[in-house]
Nucleic acid binder design. Structure first.
Length: 200
DNA sequence: AATCTGCGCAACCGCATTGGT
DNA sequence: CACCAATGCGGTTGCGCAGAT
């Protein structure tokens, strides 16, 4: 019986907007069992949804400590700077903005900031290539950050700062972490003179 | 008052990466 | 060491709402 239901759940993933009832079921299940093994979550929670769909819904909407809307000028500035550094690594950028999701930042960038940046570039006369060509792998991100700062040790710190495993939890993401990023970004704006080293 | 256009948000799809067997 | 499955990420699309004409 159960196996049949599970099978159908996997084969016929419901699509479209989530209902309040689905949200409740998902939240209830995750509260009890935790947010892991999304395929299992999808089947055991009684939702005819794909695991990926459940994950997205949880991360972008149901998860606690999520801020909705009202992106402050500070956050906007941070997003612009981080995007300049990291390119379209939305999850990394989101990791530095407590309570924000990669999807929200991505949407915000696409609808607001990209236009803003573009018009700024037109004004500056610096048209052409995007702020940061999107690297395809984390390794490339590291290389890019290193290249940006022309300083190995700094790049190493950066890599630590931008750990992917960071959660959006406000309790973890303290002011000091944010301060660290802001400092880091200040360095990006006013980079110290590169030491005479192996770096070009 | 009705229609059209643009904007913002939520969700889906495909690809890449990582972990386990 | 190779293969398979699961997970995560980024890009793109669709839907609904608000404002302008």
């Amino acid at each position: 019986m159960a196996s049949k239901q599970e099978g159908s759940a996997i084969r016929f993933c419901r699509k479209g907007a989530w209902t309040a009832e689905e949200d409740r079921k998902l939240a209830e299940y995750i509260e009890t069992h935790g947010a892991k093994k999304w395929k299992t979550v999808a089947t055991k929670s009684g939702l005819n949804r794909c695991g990926e769909s459940c994950r997205l819904r949880w991360l972008n909407y149901l998860r606690p400590n999520i801020k909705k809307g009202n992106i402050s000028p500070d956050e906007e500035d941070l997003i612009v700077r981080l995007h300049k550094l990291l390119g379209n690594r939305w999850s990394l950028i989101a990791g530095r903005l407590p309570g924000r999701t990669d999807n929200e930042i991505k949407n915000y960038w696409n609808s607001h900031l990209s236009k803003k940046i573009y018009s700024t570039k037109i004004t500056d006369g610096t048209t052409g290539a995007p702020a940061a060509p999107p690297p395809t792998t984390m390794a490339k991100v590291q290389v890019e950050v290193q290249a940006t700062h022309h300083h190995e040790s700094q790049a190493d710190n950066t890599e630590l700062s931008f750990g992917v495993g960071d959660s959006l939890d406000d309790s973890v993401e303290g002011t000091s972490a944010m301060d660290c990023i802001i400092k880091f970004l200040e360095l990006d704006e006013n980079p110290p003179p590169p030491p005479p080293g192996p770096n070009h």
